[in-house]
Write a protein that binds this DNA or RNA. Structure first.
Length: 494
RNA sequence: GGCGCGGUACCCAAGUGGUAAGGGAGAGGUCUGCAAAACCUUUAUGCGUCGGUUCGAUUCCGACCCGCGCCUCCA
């Protein structure tokens, strides 16, 4: 069965096939690097990351490009406020974004930066001017003439015929032909950063970079264009207008938009006090795996209510999966295999694929893996699992984690990174007890842990429970989870 | 006002024209030196409200109530 995806352009779920066999070219609107990324940003980027992972799992070669907007009004303003260059300012936040993305399990796409494509953007404007689609105003700005593009509004389903120019826009600000015409290039303003180009000094408009860079990297027509739902209008609508006016070809075939999330039932906003960056959450002691799991647990087109209770629940769910995987690998089982377990593993894999094929229904894929975990645990308890059943079960887990990426227990080191960052920024007061607790599991080496565990086990065999309990308490305090089983003791970092 | 989305158990959250996935939490139980994990049982005759279509609707249609998004920088 083929992947079916919702296409904003057609407003319906469609079968997704790439233009070229076995190769998918996709582009996502990335961050504007003017601040640390918040969880809403990361919901979007994680959703696109999962899409990209699933496409590769499905056998496609994926060329995935993301832009870094390192040039816009807010950046220019903030850099000036801080007394640093635009480059210095954006370098800091781009680095932070990449660190955050890696921390939360996002595989890095090919990155392109606006400031590195100024000349190409100017050329693009020149071509639009030559076609009579763009025009220059007295202040050195260039605008796109929307009247030249009859299909304008087809993505956002807006009908502009009935709307009056100037209804909500300050027409007097510039001498545009129509209030709705959008800026391709903004003329220079005194005291603000400006770039020289073949069409004069100034800076590109926001929409232009995505048209230019996506086509440069992926061609004039490519398979899929992604972003947050807020980008449908005007950003993507404008990209389409510019690009298709120039090439007279379909720009992107599929438009993939991720729904905004709510935080504690309300729209995330600084004024409501429910605005969280990834680092804010880490400082409070929430692990990247918990955050990623929660963000992946609701299908991308549904509203997700991000809550601290949900974060705690996610942490437990992740632990359950990790514990199961470890249990599987630690068992000593009789040789042979059981048909039930073989079927369970293959059915689970099939169900995960079917679920994700259905417009990335991540909730159902998770349900499938949990049902497998319960059935397999039951079988283990009942002595119904054999050695040859383990590989297919592990393979199903692996297949799950290729998409969800929450099973590696490297939260401790990641939390330590956040801790180090907070210290380097002088934010010691923001470091919570929970963060210290979450990072402690990385403190002891495997050898240290094994040594203490051996001592504990020796004490238990000697029925010296006082000593063994003391050692257990020490390890637990160090963030090590210990499980005594018939197969012997096993441990993992919490 | 225009366009669009949603209201499912204590919480989060899938889903279907034929009688409600999964996770968390709670209760009881099995196992167990302790701890942890795991398993079993249990928690919505009910899916915002009121009508309609239908043999049958939570699922389709209509109205209404409530929440949310975009229309302006915003993932």
């Amino acid at each position: 069965m083929a992947l079916r995806l919702y296409n904003t352009m057609s407003s319906q779920v469609e079968e997704f096939h790439p233009l070229r066999d076995h190769e998918i070219r996709m582009y996502a609107c990335g961050p504007t690097v003017y601040d640390y990324g918040h969880i809403g940003n990361f919901r979007t980027f994680i959703a696109v990351d999962m899409l990209q992972r699933f496409l590769r799992q499905s056998g496609y070669r994926v060329r995935y490009v993301m832009n870094i907007t390192d040039l816009d009004d807010k950046i220019i303003h903030n850099a000036a406020r801080d007394g640093v260059s635009v480059q210095q300012y954006t370098a800091k936040y781009e680095k932070a974004f990449l660190e955050d993305a890696a921390m939360i399990g996002i595989e890095q796409p090919t990155l392109v930066r606006a400031t590195e494509h100024i000349a190409a953007m100017a050329d693009f404007v020149t071509k639009l001017v030559e076609k009579g689609i763009a025009y220059r105003t007295d202040d050195g700005s260039y605008y796109f003439r929307i009247a030249s593009f009859p299909r304008y509004g087809k993505l956002s389903k807006k009908d502009f015929d009935g709307m009056l120019d100037g209804a909500r826009v300050d027409v007097d600000e510039y001498d545009k032909d129509s209030a709705r015409d959008f800026a391709l290039w903004k003329g220079p303003k005194p005291g603000e950063a400006s770039w020289d180009s073949s069409i004069g000094p100034g800076r590109p408009g926001w929409h232009l970079e995505c048209s230019v860079m996506s086509m440069q990297e992926l061609g004039e027509s490519f398979d899929l264009h992604a972003g947050g739902e807020d980008l449908i209008f005007p950003h993507h609508e404008n990209e389409i207008a510019q690009s298709e006016s120039l090439t007279e070809k379909t720009f992107a075939r599929f438009w993939f938009h991720v729904r905004f999330l709510l935080v504690e039932g309300e729209k995330m906003s600084k004024s409501l006090g429910n605005f969280y960056t990834l680092r804010d959450l880490a400082l409070k002691g929430h692990k990247p795996s918990s955050i990623r799991y929660l963000l992946t647990s609701v299908p991308y087109r549904n509203q997700l209510n991000f809550t601290f209770d949900g974060l705690r629940q996610a942490a437990v769910s992740v632990e359950r999966l990790r514990g199961f995987r470890q249990r599987l690998t630690a068992l000593s089982l009789p040789s042979g295999s059981s048909p039930e377990m073989q079927t369970l593993a293959s059915h689970t894999s099939d169900r995960m694929r079917t679920s994700l094929d259905d417009d990335l229904n991540t909730a159902q894929a998770q349900a499938a893996i949990f049902e497998m975990v319960r059935s397999a645990n039951s079988a283990i308890d009942a002595g119904g699992l054999n050695a040859d059943d383990v590989p297919p079960l592990l393979a199903a887990l692996e297949k799950f984690d290729e998409i969800f990426a929450v099973l590696n227990d490297d939260d401790g080191p990641k939390m330590k990174q956040v801790f180090d960052w907070a210290q380097s920024e002088g934010r010691d007061n923001d470091i919570s007890a929970e963060l210290r607790e979450a990072m402690r599991s990385g403190q002891l080496s495997d050898a240290d842990i094994e040594k203490k565990l051996a001592e504990m086990e020796a004490a238990r065999r000697a029925r010296n429970f006082k000593t063994s309990d003391t050692l257990r308490a020490e390890l637990t305090a160090a963030g090590i989870l210990i499980e005594n089983t018939k197969e012997g003791v096993r441990w993992r970092r919490k």
